[in-house]
């Protein structure tokens, strides 16, 4: 048996786990620069995680097994998704496990349990976070599916590795439909990963937080796992976007030599995407909760226009 794909798989998961905090560190550093503050450096997220892992857990009195199970589950779904989304190579043994729709559902199962954990402790904050998170998710999902649909029209597949493969073989060119889908995807990714203007990852102001409200009662290694999973989610959404729209750099089938090159390109892409995220986040203010229907409605509109223009114009 050819051991190569297995090694790539391991390497890719390791890349995800190791690099995700650095990416968040990079985004935070850029943000500090953009706002004229001194940054804590690229490695601050690692230090935060390390600190959290070494701390004791303060468990709310009312917490059931769901509260304790959720961090592990969320971490698990992210790692599994990292084994499927092509980051370094498309030669992944796990790739056929899931197409894009399944990956979206994998994220959804993490969200489902996080929302339950928010309800578990019986505070107003937890319920508020859960309620809002589920509302945003239900508006983001149709737009997400429409964007996926548009991409799958152009590439005749919903499997990420296959989409990358088709783009490599030159059967797909830059079309209006794909650029609409890309714009829609960016908006949805901002919503799904809880960035400004949908949610503010660094706020702990009671009335505006969404994701933070759900995980307010977590501490110690539980919190560390949830935080780490959140970083991986951001990383994975960037990688998913890359695989769908700009896969160049990911190693094609059976090409071992391209792996180091892929690593470098991945790092470069992350660097650029960090700049994009920060410019969006500094350029926009957080929206009111009920303005989000318009934001996500715009995402849906863009994705739908993508689908329509595939049929009308391409």
């Amino acid at each position: 048996m050819n051991p190569y794909p297995l090694i790539v798989e391991m390497l890719q998961i390791a890349t995800l786990i190791v690099l995700a905090p650095a990416f968040v560190g990079w985004v935070r550093t850029l943000k500090c620069w953009a706002q004229g503050r001194t940054s804590a450096g690229l490695f601050q997220p690692y230090r935060d995680l390390d600190k959290l892992f070494s701390k004791d857990i303060l468990l709310p009195e009312n917490a059931s097994w769901i509260f304790r199970f959720t961090p592990y589950l969320v971490f698990g779904t992210m790692v599994l998704a990292g084994g499927i989304i092509p980051i370094l190579s498309i030669d992944l043994p796990l790739a056929p496990t899931a197409d894009v729709i399944v990956i979206v559902a994998l994220f959804a199962i993490g969200r489902f349990f996080t929302a339950l954990a928010g309800m578990d402790i019986g505070t107003a904050f937890g319920g508020m976070g859960s309620s809002r998170e589920m509302m945003i998710a239900s508006l983001a999902e149709p737009a997400m599916l429409m964007a996926i649909f548009t991409v799958s029209l152009a590439n005749k597949s919903t499997s990420l590795s296959q989409i990358v493969h088709v783009i490599y073989s030159g059967q797909s060119v830059l079309r209006p439909s794909l650029s609409f889908a890309l714009l829609a995807f960016i908006l949805i990714a901002l919503a799904e990963t809880g960035r400004i203007p949908v949610d503010n990852p660094s706020t702990h102001l009671e009335l505006t937080m969404i994701h933070e409200a759900m995980i307010l009662e977590y501490s110690g290694r539980h919190l560390a796992l949830i935080e780490w999973a959140g970083m991986m989610k951001l990383f994975l959404f960037v990688m998913m976007g890359m695989a769908l729209f700009a896969p160049w750099g990911i190693a094609p089938r059976g090409d071992i030599a391209a792996i180091p090159y892929a690593l470098v390109i991945t790092a470069l892409k992350l660097g650029v995407m960090g700049i994009v995220i920060v410019s969006i986040e500094t350029g926009l203010a957080k929206m009111r909760l009920f303005r989000l229907t318009e934001f996500l409605g715009a995402a849906f509109l863009l994705a739908t226009l993508g689908m329509l223009s595939y049929f009308i114009l391409d």
Partner: peptide, 20 residues
């Protein structure tokens, strides 16, 4: 002609933009 369809798409997008 590729560019034409791109521009057509942009015209449509701006029309929607004006709508909202």
């Amino acid at each position: 002609s590729h560019i034409i369809s791109f521009l057509a798409a942009l015209v449509l997008l701006t029309a929607f933009g004006m709508l909202v």
